[in-house]
Write a protein that binds this DNA or RNA. Structure first.
Lengths: 195, 195
DNA sequence: GGTGTAACAGAATGATTATTCTGCTACAAG
DNA sequence: CTTGTAGCAGAATAATCATTCTGTTACACC
């Protein structure tokens, strides 16, 4: 591992994210993080101040490097359910390329592992789910403009719940097609009801 | 706390379950468990051998005291989607009586908190999800006998995923009606497609 | 080349925690 | 009452781990 003669906080967060994502907060010791990031204790503490702060910074990196690239298609003003399908496909492919069973969703994992007693983490989780909800609402509206807003929101709620469940399932499944079939079945349900 | 002149393993597991469920594995120290169970270190170690073994024993207790009472209606030979709805309602009420946001599902929590690196826990999680799947399959068959088995299994998969997502959501929600609406919307989707 | 600084490796510190151990106390059986 | 035993409280042990500290090394700038 080369000396990191100059590293940005973003680079450090990126590597930390990789480790936290795969192993969780509690199972990632500072020793592990030093090895995984290639940055010395001194570097970590002077850049972030501690393990928890480093962890929180990973949410930003996760949004930028994982969520946005996959989900922005759903957030575009004219997105439809096809874009939702593309979002799932992209994340499933990512999981496959990393190797299934994969690490799931960093946010969802953090929600159950650390959020209960931690308002900071809880806020990040809420923010993420709100983002998903907004995107799904707009995709539903575009796909079926005749549906009432109230019902659109309810369906988007169900979609968020399904999404969380799906990434949880991706942690126990070795074949991406199992996830694809679930997505397919679920989206078919939705399209049936929108007709 | 009275001296536990005689306690059964099941009683000890019950109290331990309560604490593990609310706080997770990592955040429950032996000190906490001693206080929460009213059983001394000696008692715990002589009954179970250690923290991990005690934790594993809680899965049995959880099945018996939480899952079975709520889910057996779905497992009865003539169950329908109405029984599925009752299952959700019962668990939501339980959450409300404990106080929302609640601890979610003990199994689902364990899945993300400890399962990744732990085959024993992973096996318990798989067992639980298989049980849900079986129950849902049979309820679907009874509600809509004309549906092909292949499609029934796929829908049951989606239901399991939704269930996991729902109990995850119950950890961040203070109003049970939010969960009820989600269940309602989801079951409506299902019924639409079965027609 | 010399010098200062930024980052390094790894040891010391202090806190926490699972597990084991030591004596003590309540109670039941005789 | 005596004695044996089952369970108790809490101290000792040993491991782990976040954080801080100490001395060292590579590199940029003069």
């Amino acid at each position: 591992m080369p000396r990191m003669t100059s590293f940005t906080s973003a680079q450090l967060s990126d590597r930390a994210l990789e480790h936290f994502w795969a192993n969780g907060f509690h199972a990632s010791s500072m020793d592990d993080l030093v090895k995984a990031t290639g940055v010395s204790r001194h570097g970590i503490y002077s850049s972030f101040g501690g393990k928890k702060a480093l962890f929180l910074s990973c949410f930003d990196r996760y949004r930028q490097s994982v969520v946005t690239p996959a989900f922005e298609v759903v957030e575009s003003p004219d997105a439809t359910l096809q874009d939702v399908s593309d979002y799932f496909e992209r994340q499933i492919s990512l999981g496959e390329s990393v190797g299934l069973p994969g690490p799931g969703c960093f946010v969802a994992n953090s929600a159950t592992e650390v959020a209960p007693g931690d308002p900071d983490v809880m806020a990040e989780v809420a923010r993420h789910n709100d983002r998903l909800h907004k995107g799904f609402v707009s995709a539903l509206q575009n796909s079926a403009p005749h549906i009432k807003p109230q019902r659109t929101r309810e369906l988007a709620d169900v979609m968020v719940i399904f999404t969380n469940g799906l990434w949880t399932k991706s942690r126990t499944v070795s074949d991406g097609d199992v996830l694809r079939e679930a997505v397919q079945s679920f989206l078919t349900l939705l399209k049936d009801t929108l007709k």
